[in-house]
Design a binder for these strands. Structure first.
Lengths: 193, 193
DNA sequence: GCCGCTTGAGAACGACCGTTCTCCACATTA
DNA sequence: TAATGTGGAGAACGGTCGTTCTCAAGCGGC
């Protein structure tokens, strides 16, 4: 029954992820996840011992998928020029904001909803933020900018801000504004790593 | 009893505002607001016919206070140079982030929590966003920048991003990152309006 | 066939929440 | 004093949610 359980875990995570992201964590009950995943409540609780644990798993899964999609997109935009690779991050955001069902950043949303009560969820959000920051820093360092840390911090503000603005205004334009701004604070173009 | 009711409305709004902002809207029940405001439940519901109405009043009140504080701060930084006035917005954010009890933007928090279910709350959030944008646009237009709308859009992304980053990282530094970035996209300094 | 185990379906439990209702103390007016 | 109305305290109601429990059906081993 191990394979069975593994399959159930995946179905539960898939269903919970869809529901959590679309309707919010608090708005989705375990019953609804059970219905969507097509498992019994008992099995659900054997896969994830509590809603808290399921929420954390949802966030870790989203982190993996999102960062994977981002890295893949940036790698696909392989003009090779480091500056373009940084800007491609905002192109990816622009694509994401236009996806049907986009409802803001899963991590800031979750942090707002349950970050105060769930230490596990808050930790998952922080881990994601750190991971995105590290990824961005690598891209930025390759541009040969004099202070990569400072530029990374500024780009993270642009990244988060475009997400927030896009979610509230239901527009993908904030990705463009962020991209334009990032272009202004990156070195114009000379050397690659 | 009209003065009585007015005083009760104020006490309720004050108590609800504190609780909503600190603990989140969904986490605070009407009973708790009643206790904190020291009024009966009956009176509470005579002042605000539903929680939804109270949430909207809370947001409109916060909008008034926040924009008032921001305008006052910027006016106080009256070096007269328009560019400095725009940057003062981010100094004000830096001050706000350091206030005890800062817990992110009341509006994006509320939008995340109840924006999907409460049209009144969502409208209040949009009104606030629009008002901040208009205020910022006036400051930016005074700098004589060639395209004030574009710069405003970019500064709004910086504004929202620093709020989000500060809330999640419990740090006031994102205000500095946003300020540095804004400084890079504003005209260096020549004419005032 | 019979026993023990696991499973699924869903009822049940306790807690909370938004809102309404009951009840009684009190004040006002005649 | 009696009638009337008002307000407060908090119980009550209907609903939801996270979690646990019941119960019967199914299945493998003897």
């Amino acid at each position: 029954m191990d394979a069975d359980n593994e399959a159930a875990r995946e179905r539960v995570l898939e269903a919970a992820g869809e529901l959590f992201y679309t309707h919010g964590i608090r708005a989705v009950g375990m019953d609804r996840i059970r219905d969507a995943a097509g498992v019994s409540l008992k099995r659900l609780y054997r896969c994830y011992a509590s809603k808290d644990e399921l929420v954390e798993a949802y966030l870790r899964d989203r982190d993996r998928r999102l960062r994977g999609a981002l890295a893949e997109y940036v790698a696909g935009e392989a003009t090779g020029r480091p500056r373009e690779r940084v800007l491609a991050v905002f192109d990816w955001l622009h694509w994401w904001f236009g996806e049907p069902g986009f409802r803001g950043c899963p991590f800031t949303n979750a942090f707002n909803e349950v970050g105060a009560e769930s230490a596990r969820a808050a930790a998952a959000v922080h881990d994601h933020q750190r991971a995105v920051g590290a990824y961005l820093r690598d891209l930025i360092a390759a541009t040969g900018t004099p202070d990569p840390d400072a530029v990374t911090n500024r780009c993270l503000v642009l990244y988060a801000g475009s997400l927030t603005c896009a979610a509230i205004s239901h527009s993908r334009a904030p990705a463009l504004y962020a991209r334009e701004t990032a272009a202004a604070i990156l070195p114009s173009d000379e050397r690659a790593a």
